[in-house]
Amino acid sequence: MSLSLIFTDELKGFYKSKVMVALWIIFPIITILIHYLAPGVESETSFSVFTSIFISSIGGLIASLILTVQIIHEKDARAYDLFLIRPIKRWYLPVSKFFAVFICVTIAISIALSVGIAIDILQNEVIINFVLPSIIDSFVMTISVIAISSAFGVLLGIVSPSIIVGVLIVIFIGQYVEILPLIPVLIGIRNSVLFVTLLGIFITILLMIIAIIAFRRKQF
């Protein structure tokens, strides 16, 4: 009961937040802008695949930043007192935050990707069956990046002493962490999507376990 309450509260908080509302709108707009400002991208790969990769790189950074900044801000404002004095398990909080942001950012990216697919179909007369496998592959990679970025954001929010330190770490180190699941693609492993998925799940779980341990030990 408490987990669903906290998760629902976090989800409501995120999807109604100004940042998320902006993402619902900005991601599809970026997709359309890329189409008109960089029309040559379709020649090498489908537009939806390009869009997916481009948006996921921004989405990962945003997911990390949202979580890092919010958690540090809530720690400073002593917002967790309210929950931690109740007989609820401490891991509920970081896990709820992770899933709330992961779901919201994934939906925002899915909307942008749908716009990309629509452009592919309408403007370039691309046969959807032909590009569908690559769209699915790139979407899986995007999900992996967002999951790892969200977990990294949760961890950093818990351990970082200040917002400025957290933001700097996200910007300068986060980008390397979030591309870790793409290593199988970069080194050209066959069936790389499967490895990307497995690596994405493994790194996300690892980061979340470290985050939960850090949160349990944290003195508030």
Binding site: A77, R78, A79, D81, L82, I85, R86, P87
Partner: peptide, 16 residues
């Protein structure tokens, strides 16, 4: 601590 959390209430000085 969880048994105690069931029976106490806390008002922090600067709670929001």
């Amino acid at each position: 601590p969880n048994e105690i959390r069931k029976i106490i209430s806390y008002l922090p000085e600067d709670a929001g």
